[in-house]
Each structure stands twice: as structure tokens, then as C-alpha cells.
């Protein structure tokens, strides 16, 4: 069972290590982790996807909350939040395949951000399934390189998760 949690942390050196270390020593599995600034420069926001049952999720949240540099931990219910991930994909593309790839890019409302004689780089955003789907379709041409950001997530409507 996958769960998404948003973690507001103090923007200090070593905080990522504390969180990663907690996950590894308590044998919690991280599926993805993304981190970046918030509107307040003192705080960063992490979105962590955790794999495990309800008891494990509860322990993850409680243990994270114990860290002094962690300000807030919230579970994000998938049905009540929007989730986005960005991927850049370098795919083989020659004269024959280029147009077909461009069609796929259009269908997924993705973008081509670099073109050369033998390859191009595609940028795509969306939820996890959408990115999985385009990766699957592009595989036939030969994916040379793939980088995904890990997902970020936000609750719909008026509810706000802030420090």
C-alpha cells in the first residue's frame, strides 16, 4: 500500500540526512522523495511516498514528528489531492521514428526540449501513471536516459499544509 506524506522541515544542512537515516534504520521503504523550497525561505517541503501498511505509516509519521527539524507531517489522501511528477527522457530518434515520437509527445501534452540527429529529449509532467505510460510507449524506440523528479503533491481546495 502506497502512502504520500508532506513533510515541512527547517531549511538547514543535514536535515535530509536525518530523514533518510531514519527511514533506513527503522526499515521503512521510501518509494520516492522530492524536496524543494517553500514560500518561506526558512522551510523546505518534502513529499515522500512510503510503501507499507497502516501501522507502518503511523510509525513513519510519529518517528518523523520526533525529529527536531521537522515542523509538520501530514498524510495526503490521493483522492483529495493533486499529484505531479516531471520526467525528462532521452530517446533514440532518427528520420524514420521522429514523427511517430512527436505524435506520442502531442497525445501526452509533453514537450520536446532538445533535438539532435540521433536522439531527442522529451519533458513530461503528470501523475505517476501518465509518466509510466509514456515511458512504456517510448521504450520501443530505445530510451537512452531517464530522469524523474519524484512526485510533489498538494491537497485540493482550501486546506493548507504549512509550517
Amino acid at each position: 500500500m502506497k502512502h504520500t506524506i508532506a513533510v515541512i522541515v527547517e531549511n538547514k544542512s543535514g536535515v535530509l540526512t536525518r530523514i533518510a537515516g531514519l527511514f533506513s534504520r527503522r526499515s521503512f521503504n521510501i518509494d520516492s522523495l522530492s524536496v524543494g523550497a517553500t514560500d518561506n525561505p526558512d522551510y523546505s517541503r518534502m513529499t515522500i511516498t512510503v510503501n507499507g501498511d497502516r501501522d507502518i505509516l503511523e510509525q513513519v509519521i510519529k518517528q518523523l514528528s520526533k525529529l527536531i527539524n521537522v515542523i509538520r507531517v501530514s498524510e495526503l489522501d490521493a483522492s483529495e489531492s493533486v499529484e505531479r511528477e516531471l520526467a525528462v527522457i532521452k530517446v533514440n530518434a532518427d528520420k524514420e521514428s521522429r514523427s511517430e515520437i512527436m505524435q506520442i509527445v502531442n497525445i501526452f501534452r509533453a514537450k520536446i526540449i532538445d533535438v539532435s540527429h540521433r536522439s531527442m529529449i522529451i519533458e513530461v509532467t503528470g501523475d505517476e501513471e501518465k509518466i509510466d505510460a509514456i515511458v512504456q510507449l517510448l521504450r520501443q524506440f530505445g530510451i537512452k536516459e531517464l530522469a524523474r523528479t519524484g512526485k510533489v503533491s498538494m491537497v485540493r481546495g482550501a486546506r493548507v499544509i504549512k509550517a
Partner: peptide, 8 residues
């Protein structure tokens, strides 16, 4: 006093 101990 430590909530993380509950149901651990």
C-alpha cells in the same frame, strides 16, 4: 510521553 511508543 513518546507518542511513537504507542502501538509500536
Amino acid at each position: 510521553v513518546d507518542p511513537a511508543e504507542v502501538s509500536k
